[in-house]
Simulated scan of single mutants.
Amino acid sequence: MRVGAGRSSCGRWSGDAAKRAAGWSPATPVTVEEKVEAIRDLAADETVAALAACDLWIIPPRVGRMILAIPPARTPSPMIAASA
């Protein structure tokens, strides 16, 4: 790491910069790769992963009513019917 890269003007390392330099996961992810890795770490627990998926993909009631008003949306697809 270059002098001053990831360091404050006082010449001290921040905790996250030191972790990055050591190859550890930082406490506050900044890059896309760090954020994806943080999500993977959290989603390693099956319960947490299921709750996160539900929170991310929940459909607002107004949108759900609009989708159900479309006739093809009410019939299950062959893929869903086969897995049931």
Results as ranks from 00 to 15, higher is better:
residue 1 M to A: 13
residue 1 M to F: 10
residue 1 M to R: 11
residue 2 R to W: 10
residue 2 R to E: 11
residue 3 V to F: 10
residue 7 R to W: 05
residue 7 R to V: 04
residue 11 G to Y: 03
residue 13 W to M: 03
residue 13 W to P: 00
residue 16 D to E: 02
residue 16 D to Q: 03
residue 17 A to L: 01
residue 19 K to Q: 07
residue 19 K to M: 06
residue 20 R to I: 00
residue 20 R to K: 02
residue 20 R to A: 00
residue 20 R to F: 02
residue 22 A to N: 05
residue 22 A to C: 06
residue 22 A to T: 04
residue 23 G to E: 02
residue 23 G to Y: 01
residue 24 W to Y: 13
residue 25 S to G: 04
residue 26 P to A: 01
residue 27 A to N: 13
residue 28 T to L: 08
residue 29 P to E: 00
residue 30 V to Y: 02
residue 33 E to A: 10
residue 35 K to S: 05
residue 36 V to S: 03
residue 37 E to I: 02
residue 38 A to Y: 04
residue 39 I to L: 11
residue 39 I to E: 03
residue 41 D to H: 07
residue 42 L to A: 14
residue 43 A to N: 06
residue 43 A to L: 02
residue 44 A to M: 06
residue 46 E to F: 04
residue 49 A to Q: 03
residue 50 A to Q: 13
residue 51 L to K: 04
residue 51 L to H: 06
residue 53 A to K: 12
residue 54 C to D: 13
residue 55 D to L: 15
residue 55 D to T: 08
residue 58 I to K: 09
residue 58 I to E: 10
residue 58 I to W: 12
residue 58 I to T: 15
residue 59 I to L: 15
residue 59 I to G: 09
residue 62 R to H: 12
residue 63 V to W: 10
residue 63 V to T: 14
residue 66 M to D: 13
residue 66 M to S: 10
residue 67 I to E: 06
residue 68 L to F: 10
residue 69 A to V: 11
residue 69 A to G: 13
residue 70 I to A: 08
residue 72 P to Y: 12
residue 73 A to K: 06
residue 74 R to A: 14
residue 74 R to S: 12
residue 75 T to L: 11
residue 76 P to S: 11
residue 77 S to Y: 15
residue 77 S to T: 14
residue 77 S to E: 15
residue 78 P to E: 11
residue 78 P to W: 05
residue 78 P to D: 15
residue 80 I to G: 08
residue 81 A to Y: 09
residue 82 A to C: 13
residue 83 S to Y: 12
residue 83 S to E: 15
residue 84 A to Q: 15
residue 84 A to L: 15
